[in-house]
Simulated assay, not measured.
Amino acid sequence: MVFGTIMDNFGPRWAFGIFLIGSASVMFTILMVKSAVALILAGALIGFFSNGMFGGYGAVISRLYPTEIRSTANSIIMNVGRAIGGFSSVVIGLLMDHYSLAVTMGCLSALYILSFLVMQALPGMRKLAH
Rank of each mutant, 00 (worst) to 15 (best):
V2D: 08
F3Y: 11
G4N: 14
G4S: 14
T5N: 09
M7E: 15
D8L: 10
G11W: 03
G11S: 07
G11E: 01
W14Y: 14
W14I: 15
F16W: 03
F16N: 00
I18G: 06
F19S: 03
F19Y: 15
L20C: 09
I21E: 07
I21H: 08
G22D: 07
A24H: 00
A24E: 08
S25C: 15
S25E: 08
S25K: 05
S25H: 06
V26K: 04
M27P: 01
M27T: 03
F28I: 05
I30E: 02
L31E: 01
M32D: 08
M32K: 14
V33R: 00
V33M: 00
K34P: 02
K34W: 04
S35W: 01
V37Q: 11
V37I: 14
A38H: 00
A38L: 01
A38T: 08
A38F: 00
A38R: 06
I40W: 07
L41S: 07
A42F: 04
G43I: 12
G43N: 08
G43P: 08
L45K: 10
L45R: 13
L45H: 07
F48P: 01
F48D: 03
S50E: 13
N51I: 12
G52L: 04
M53V: 11
F54V: 15
F54M: 11
G55C: 10
G55I: 07
G56I: 03
G56M: 03
G56D: 02
Y57F: 15
Y57Q: 03
Y57R: 02
A59W: 02
V60F: 03
V60H: 05
I61S: 04
S62H: 09
Y65P: 05
Y65G: 07
T67D: 07
T67Q: 15
T67Y: 09
E68Q: 13
I69P: 05
S71E: 14
T72D: 13
A73H: 08
A73W: 12
A73R: 12
A73L: 10
A73N: 04
N74I: 15
I77E: 06
I77Q: 00
M78Y: 11
N79I: 09
V80E: 10
G81Q: 04
R82L: 14
A83V: 13
I84R: 08
I84T: 13
G85Y: 08
G86I: 10
F87I: 11
S88I: 01
S88K: 00
S89H: 10
V91Y: 00
V91H: 02
I92L: 14
I92N: 08
M96S: 13
H98A: 10
H98K: 15
Y99T: 13
Y99Q: 06
Y99L: 10
A102W: 11
A102L: 05
V103F: 06
V103D: 04
T104G: 03
G106A: 10
L108E: 02
L108M: 06
S109W: 01
A110N: 08
A110H: 07
L111H: 02
L111K: 00
Y112G: 11
Y112L: 07
Y112T: 07
I113A: 14
L114D: 05
S115Y: 02
F116C: 09
L117W: 04
L117E: 05
V118W: 02
Q120L: 12
Q120T: 05
L122K: 03
P123R: 14
G124Y: 04
M125C: 09
R126D: 08
K127M: 10
L128K: 00
A129M: 12
A129H: 13
H130W: 06
